[in-house]
C-alpha cells in the first residue's frame, strides 16, 4: 500500500512544487553567508516543517476518496489503511530531510563545526517530521474537504508552530517543539533535554493523530 501511494505521489507533477519551495527557502536561509552548522540546521528544520506537512497532504490527497475505500477493504481495516497513509506520508519527507542536511554544505552556507553538529542537525530535522505528518494529515482532503480549508489548516498550523513556540509563551506545549529544538541545538543542551523534546514532539503528534483518527471514523 505504501509503495502504491508513493508511486502515485511520484507520478504527480505537483510533488515537485514542495521540493522547489524547500530549495527556495533554504537558498534564502543560506544566501546571507556562513553560519554555525547547528544553528543553521535548527532554522532549516523550522522552515522545512510546513514543506514536510505540505508533502504529506499532497500524498494523501493524490489518492481518490473511493480508492481509499477500496484500500480499506483490501487491507482489512480502517486502522491499517490510516497507518499506511501516514507512513507513506512520512516517507515523502525523506528527500527533503536529505536536502536540508546536504544543501548547506554544498553551497558553503555553514562553517565546519563541532563533531556533533551533523547528528544534532539530523535529529532536529527528524523531530519535525512526525508533527508535520500529523499536520499534513489534518490538512488532507479527507478531513478538510476543500482545497481552501486544507490550505488554511496547513498555513495556520505552520504559523502557530512558530508563534506558540516563541520564548516566554505560557503554553508552548500547544505547538510542536520546533523552536525549542532549534534553541537546544544552538545552545548545546543536555541529553535529558533532548529526550524531553523528543517525547514532547511524539506526544504532540500522538494527540493530533488521535483527533485525526476520530475524524476519519466519520470521513473514511
Amino acid at each position: 500500500m505504501i509503495r502504491m501511494r508513493l508511486a502515485a505521489y511520484l507520478h504527480t507533477q505537483i510533488a515537485v512544487v514542495p521540493l522547489l519551495a524547500a530549495l527556495a527557502v533554504l537558498s534564502v536561509l543560506y544566501g546571507g553567508g556562513q553560519a554555525r552548522a547547528a544553528e543553521a540546521y535548527g532554522m532549516s528544520a523550522i522552515v522545512l516543517f510546513p514543506v514536510f506537512a505540505w508533502q504529506v497532504k499532497i500524498l494523501l490527497d493524490v489518492e481518490p476518496d473511493v480508492q481509499r475505500h477500496i484500500a480499506i477493504t483490501a487491507l482489512g481495516s480502517r486502522h491499517r489503511e490510516l497507518v499506511n497513509g501516514l507512513l507513506a506520508g512520512a516517507a515523502t519527507t525523506c528527500v527533503t530531510v536529505l536536502l536540508g542536511m546536504v544543501l548547506p554544505w554544498a553551497v558553503g552556507g555553514v562553517s565546519a563545526d563541532e563533531g556533533l553538529a551533523l547528528a544534532e542537525g539530523l535529529w532536529v530535522h527528524l523531530i519535525a517530521v512526525p508533527p508535520a505528518v500529523a499536520l499534513g494529515a489534518m490538512a488532507s482532503r479527507a478531513i478538510s474537504r476543500t482545497a481552501g480549508a486544507g490550505a488554511m489548516v496547513l498555513a495556520t498550523g505552520a504559523v502557530l508552530a512558530i508563534v506558540l513556540g516563541l520564548r516566554g509563551f505560557p503554553a508552548p506545549w500547544l505547538a510542536p517543539p520546533l523552536m525549542s529544538a532549534a534553541r537546544y541545538v544552538n545552545t548545546d543542551g543536555s541529553l535529558p533535554q533532548a529526550l524531553g523534546i523528543t517525547a514532547w514532539a511524539l506526544a504532540w503528534t500522538a494527540a493530533v493523530l488521535f483527533g485525526y483518527s476520530r475524524l476519519r471514523r466519520a470521513r473514511p
Binding site: M4, T73, L75
Partner: peptide, 26 residues
Amino acid sequence: VGWVPERFPAAQPFTALAYLRHMAAI
C-alpha cells in the same frame, strides 16, 4: 472483503496492469 464501488476511481496514474499488480500485492 471485496468492494466494488459504483464508480471506479479512474483518476489514478497507473495502467490497468500496474493498478492490478499493486492491488494484488496489497
